[in-house]
Amino acid sequence: MAAILVFSERDEVAFQLLGEANKLGEQLGMEVAAAALGLSDADGFLSRGVSTVYTAKNEELKDFEASVYAQALEQVAKQADAAIILLGSTRRGKELAGRLAQKMKVGSLTDAGRLEVIDGRVVCSRNAFGGATVAAQTILEGIQVIAVSPSAGEAPAAAEPSGSVAEVALVLEPARIKKVATAPKSQDSANIEGAEVLVCVGKGLAGEAELKMVDELAQALGGLVACTKPLATDEKWLPEERIVGLSGKIGKPALAICLGISGQVQFTVGIRDAGTIVAVNTDQNAFIFQMADYGIVGDLHQVVPELTAALKG
């Protein structure tokens, strides 16, 4: 039986993919297999309903390296008779998708949000034009390599395992990249994707010290502080986990407040599903006002403390 093969270098992402894989498997009459390579947790897959978990003991798989993992997955996919390969659309997952698809000479789609089956093929919705539009795209022929956004699915609950483990003997060319050091990022636990209220701040903010007033507003609203990309990557005033948009988090809050943000598409894609959008900007022609339900034309440094006071009042 043809199979849907699931892999991510992060188990929690792979487990989420299983939710999507199970749905596709039911509609397409395919079984769900998983590749538990490297330090991955084979039992975790089994207890989440996977019929075959492929494992390999090769030394080369100890660390994730895209070209090595592409070789491994090509071989596992053959063994599993995979028609669809689902990967996590993390940075490592995306670089793997390209390398693997090229190795297999097939098409690939990354950053896939919703997946649907039409005429026996998977149709993916993904952002296009920087997030200005949402495209429905499908791979017409051959094996479908699809990297799915980590937030798209929910992991099935663990249950009594029914599948089996198959250890495969892989032949792998070693990596030509040498890992010298890893510096873990301090993990910010803020759940931007799940927040009911987001107070987003952009380059209109005068300085790092002014973050305090933004924090206070967020607290008064019972929300979380998020930001545009340059505030995290260039100014480094907030951790990158707080970035909202195409290369950051996609939120779905009831209320999003945008302070000193121009409203370029790569940002607005991250808040466009918000129930209500409020914008504060000195430039009355700022594009963000087109996206907003309520707008205040003014200096955020004056508006924010007043607003916080009014909310507390």
Binding site: G107, T133, A136, Q137, L140, I277, F289, D293
Partner: peptide, 18 residues
């Protein structure tokens, strides 16, 4: 190999009160 079936902006209905 890739077919784009549709490519549209999502519905946005905002009040736009300034």
């Amino acid at each position: 190999q890739i077919k784009t079936i549709s490519n549209l902006a999502p519905e946005q209905d905002r009040k736009r009160l300034l």
